[in-house]
Amino acid sequence: MELTLHVWRQKNGQDSGKMVTYKARDVAPESSFLEMLDQVNEDLIKQNDEPIAFDHDCREGICGSCSMMINGKAHGGRKGTTTCQLHMRSFKDGEQIYIEPWRAKAFPVVKDLVVDRGAFDRIISSGGFVSVNTGGVPDANAILISKQSADTAMDAAECIGCGACVAACKNASSMLFVAAKVSQFANLPQGQPERMQRVSNMVEQMDKEGFGNCTNYFECEAACPKQISVGFIANMNRDYLKASLLHQEPVGKA
């Protein structure tokens, strides 16, 4: 296969950046999208050019590192697929491919296709955890959890934090990510003690990071490589409403 790539090149955060056109030659249809980029980079290195910088780690669709817009679609838009699991057989010989980084104020470009997703880490630090006391190991079945709750929590916990939801949203909103991280605990008994405080803190941090708002047009759900449902956003909306209206500090002494 031979392809024409239009790739966003940007030296660093200060550089204004631009699209640069490259040819990808002798691409095997069974190679992955990242392998195709590796091949282009080898050519660039041989020509003493700077290789295209992109994030990647596990290359098996579970780490959430690889992140790029391919022809305007996060991870290329193939259902339930990360960029590393996208194969070149999904493209036609001679196709023009546009490759851009995630675009969001909260995800500043570090270099080329690499963006800083630290905003997600700060949202997690603000409440995406359960506090567990140290001590003896608790009995495995001391807390009963229905299969349905466990499955729902697991569906939310599938989120790999890649940021495709933000990239696909016209408002660069991170609602699907935050909703998944809120809901994985909201559906488990272990998440109940901090439930109200958690959703308040995480939504507050999300707003502080400069993500946009939800228009409920559900591009995030379609773009999510883990197919996280927007039902979790409704979950978060419900919890945040409850927390805002009803949650109060400890009553204290008169």
Partner: peptide, 21 residues
């Protein structure tokens, strides 16, 4: 929402968003 995406994509596409939305 506009401020949240200061730089737009060169290639814009949607997967399932309706025209109205």
């Amino acid at each position: 929402n506009r401020a949240a995406r200061p730089q737009r994509y060169q290639y814009e596409a949607t997967l399932q968003a309706s025209f109205a939305s």
